[in-house]
Design a protein around this nucleic acid. Sequence first.
DNA 1: ATTACCATGTAAGTAGTTACATGATTGT
DNA 2: ACAATCATGTAACTACTTACATGGTAAT
Lengths: 183, 183
Amino acid sequence: MSLRCAILTALVERPSTGRELTRRFDSSIGYFWHATHQQIYRELGNMADDGLIQPHASQLKGRGAPRCYEITETGEEHLRTWVHSGQEPVTVKDPLLVRLRAAAVLGGIDMREQVQQHLDYHRSLLETYRSIEERDFSRLPGTQRERVQYLILRAGIDTELSWANWCAKALEQLGTEQTRRHP
Amino acid sequence: MSLRCAILTALVERPSTGRELTRRFDSSIGYFWHATHQQIYRELGNMADDGLIQPHASQLKGRGAPRCYEITETGEEHLRTWVHSGQEPVTVKDPLLVRLRAAAVLGGIDMREQVQQHLDYHRSLLETYRSIEERDFSRLPGTQRERVQYLILRAGIDTELSWANWCAKALEQLGTEQTRRHP
DNA sequence: ATTACCATGTAAGTAGTTACATGATTGT
DNA sequence: ACAATCATGTAACTACTTACATGGTAAT
């Protein structure tokens, strides 16, 4: 449901082809809802069948031809209803923490490199977010819509900051644990 | 793979029945990897087929009888290999942020109640973590294994704290946006 | 014309969710 | 004996991942 509605939201912002949506899910939208092009094309097909979107009434040719979709009134209604509906159950999934616990239980496994990789990843994502922040939101206040988009970006920044700090702390501890610099 | 290895880790800690594992996934393990009892029983069956675990050689009766599983050497080897293997691609999924963006794009939707519910949820989880922290990790340092488990708990605390703060900030902004207390 | 890349898909396999079924145990 | 609950599952469905296929367009 969330993928469907994330796509609908993107199409309200502006009509797009599958390829364009894929690119948008690789950058902005993908920062809070990840999706591959296979998911997107399939969902576009399903939504067209359900009448939530329709191909732009211009060029519609064969297989390899770009098809630009726009949202229908039914689609907007669907999106509006979903936005108001209660939230789904939270399902936490963090493989790194599973690995850490496994390593602690098995014993004798050095996890510093993996934590370091995560630290690098979170720092790099944080940097990306910071540059978006500077580029798009440096002069406040802006419209209400812009301010909410800034809020969403802040969620990403806060999350990455929190994880980067945690990784640094973890590295510190794993370091003193296993290398015994000052025995 | 992560579910499989989360279960294997739990079984290294101590042999358990499906029911016990389900309970453990409802509390401690579930704080960083969520799973339902249906997933767990199916995975237990698959892993037994693959020789990674075996039922304790005590009472094995019919359908409704509890079966206590323990990890095999093959299973431990499998877990050890997985722990060392590189991490899987991160797939972010946050329905609240999707809803927020949709609401901003559609316009005229008050999201404060939903954000408030999230705030309540994160605060309550934070409180749970804090009480575990006090109960299990108040006197440091403890063994290396305990310290890693504390690190994992800290990840949860940091995450919830970060989200709670973000929700509070968001509420503040959505409040001034939409109620116009000082026009 | 060939190569490279763009855009749209298909197929098979894996993982997760929801709803339901059945045997065992416990309390009254 | 019966109901409630515990424990273990099955089945059908939905979502996601991975690998591959096909047609279209542009550069050389």
